[in-house]
């Protein structure tokens, strides 16, 4: 079983997994995209909250062998926070942006409206919430810790019901230490990614498999 499969099996149904990239060189963000690839390829539906530039996301997805265009609008739906804030229009199907004036609190209100509308628009099955990367809130908002806590609350309000599989939050500790504390508190599983003796590993720091060390890339 490879790393992504092991991680997905650790997560209780409807649970929250936080992947915290502690060392940049561990490439924990790419590992999280491997999880995304796994979910999309097996046909699950993913709502992805994008706080980084779209092209950065697309390029890194390509690096791990994931062509997002094959899934966009089919089982991948992107909420483009970065593009909304900087008003960089995107025409792709399955990419949603917010229009009009945005600040910290307006963003939360509009995010919630969009999520409610989208959830009600049709039946969803095997639904996942995914962020790439949560850390982006530190670059986009004036009071990131506050915005992030509100986002977590919106998730709890809306995605706390049937047909909802789980949440994968991707964080990068060096960029945005402010949000790690809530990630620890509300997550069922936390995995930190580090470089230890020249190896890229994930260490389970919270959850039933606490203390387990995973090979992030390759392996059996």
């Amino acid at each position: 079983m490879n790393g992504t499969e092991r991680v997905l099996r650790m997560l209780p149904a409807g649970g929250v997994l936080s992947l915290i990239q502690s060392d940049l060189e561990s490439n924990g963000e790419l590992f999280s995209l491997l999880i995304l690839r796994r979910l999309l390829e097996r046909g699950d539906t993913v709502f992805l909250f994008l706080y980084e530039p779209f092209r950065v996301f697309e390029n890194n997805a390509t690096t791990v062998g994931l062509n997002i265009r094959e899934h966009l609008g089919k089982n991948l739906y992107i909420f483009d926070a970065f593009g909304s804030i900087y008003r960089i229009p995107r025409r792709e199907e399955g990419v949603h942006q917010l229009s009009g004036y945005l600040d910290d609190s307006v963003f939360i209100i509009k995010l919630r409206e969009w999520a409610v509308k989208t959830l009600e628009s049709r039946e969803w099955r095997n639904l996942w919430i995914f962020t790439y990367t949560s850390t982006g809130v530190c670059k986009l908002f004036r009071r990131p810790y506050l915005v992030y806590r509100m986002i977590i609350a919106v998730r709890e309000l809306l995605f706390n019901n049937a047909e909802y599989e789980g949440t994968v939050l991707t964080l990068s500790e060096p960029e945005c230490p402010d949000i790690s504390d809530i990630a620890y508190t509300v997550s069922d599983i936390v995995i930190e990614t580090h470089v230890v003796n020249g190896r890229r590993v994930g260490i389970v720091t919270k959850g039933a498999n606490e203390g387990e060390v995973l090979e992030l890339f390759g392996g059996d």
């Binding site: 929250v16 509100m150 977590i152 609350a153 709890e156 809530i182 508190t185 509300v186």
Partner: peptide, 14 residues
Amino acid sequence: ISYPIHALMKAFEV
């Protein structure tokens, strides 16, 4: 002091 109530309830549950 710290969390929206819905996030707090999730933290309690965990």
